[in-house]
């Protein structure tokens, strides 16, 4: 549904991927991309100030793949995420306040402080969890797909994973089963060029992860992962095919993480120049530039969206800081269900 004020239709020279996203939806897209970026910047700052312990994996620079791949999803659709999962979580609709509370290990976090950054899940919102095991979500997605089929639900599952994860045996087993059983799954590889320090060129013999789709007789699509409309278009088509019983798709989003792998990374395996070059391809600024060029949003309107996201993150952080810690007497709670 397009609002009366929607200007998207009045801009004839847009590429179709951009025109396909109406202004109302685009506002949501921008809000989420900013929320992700600012969530992670605040998480990083909190970490630097010693306010949180443990580790974290930031997806700064990868916001378009998280938001683009989930844009066509309904609330009841599922995602499975990775260790680098804040973006996926926000993209699927989680509240930053409860995410921060989890990050701070608080009782009112999404997982009552038992999971932390690497295990944030929002089961009610369809996020079946980040995962500390590289490739861990891939086989689980197969079961989710089986479940959707057995229960005859009109749902799809999006499973995110990295380029590094595609070298795990789990990748092969999962894609094969998803294909033979025509399961409604989108395998979304966020290829950020590295698995920790390992360059994809040294870790795999084919140039693209998507090339591997041939082995499973499923469509394999390479897309510019920093181009939100392009990612959204590819994912929409894959989701439609999955819903119609056409089976899974392997989507490879070529992207880049601008921060280190985790807190301890000294970037010894890549150059400053490479990082700077990718910084100039920031998915948020790129989208904003395209939107203003087509006069769909004014710079002021974009600034308003960004500022609102910042305010939301600031409030979320305050919520987390003020939240209660778990009680050690509940230590062994929820190991088993009754």
């Amino acid at each position: 549904m397009k609002a009366d004020t929607d200007t998207s239709a009045r801009r004839p020279n847009q590429r179709p991927e951009l025109a396909a996203i109406d202004d109302e939806t685009m506002r949501g897209v921008l809000r989420k991309m900013h929320l992700i970026r600012k969530f992670e910047e605040a998480a990083e700052a909190s970490y630097m100030r010693g306010l949180i312990h443990g580790t974290m994996h930031l997806s700064i620079g990868q916001e378009a793949s998280a938001v683009g791949a989930t844009l066509a999803l309904m609330d009841e659709d599922y995602i499975l995420s990775t260790h680098r999962g804040h973006g996926h979580c926000i993209a699927k609709g989680a509240e930053p306040a409860r995410m921060f509370a989890e990050f701070f290990g608080k009782e009112n976090g999404y997982c009552r402080g038992r999971g932390g950054s690497m295990h944030i899940a929002d089961v009610d919102g369809g996020n079946l969890g980040a995962n500390g095991i590289v490739g861990g979500g891939l086989p689980i997605a197969v079961g989710v797909g089986m479940s959707i089929k057995a229960q005859k639900l009109d749902r799809v599952a999006v499973v995110f994973f990295g380029d590094g994860a595609s070298n795990e045996g789990a990748f092969h087993e999962a894609l094969n089963m998803a294909s033979i059983w025509k399961l409604p799954i989108l395998f979304v590889c966020e290829n950020n060029k590295y698995g920790m320090s390992m360059d994809i060129g040294r870790a795999m013999a084919v140039p693209n992860v998507a090339d591997r789709a041939v082995a499973y007789a499923m469509p394999g699509v390479v897309v510019d992962g920093n181009d939100l409309p392009a990612v959204a278009a590819v994912a929409r088509e894959a989701a439609e095919r999955a819903r119609a019983g056409g089976g899974p798709t392997l989507i490879e989003c070529k992207t880049y993480r601008l921060r280190g792998h985790s807190k301890s990374d000294r970037n010894l395996y890549r150059t400053k120049e490479e990082i700077e070059e990718w910084r100039s391809r920031c998915p948020i600024r790129r989208l904003e530039a395209e939107l203003t060029a087509h006069e769909r949003f004014t710079p002021e309107a974009l600034m308003t969206i960004e500022e609102a996201a910042q305010a939301e993150i600031d409030a979320a952080l305050d919520f987390a800081k003020a939240s209660p810690d778990p009680d050690p007497k509940d230590l062994t709670r929820d190991v088993y269900a009754d």
Partner: peptide
């Protein structure tokens, strides 16, 4: 893969 599929089916 099948152990993971059991997990995914069970949680949904």
């Amino acid at each position: 893969g099948i152990a993971g599929a059991a997990v995914g089916a069970a949680i949904t």
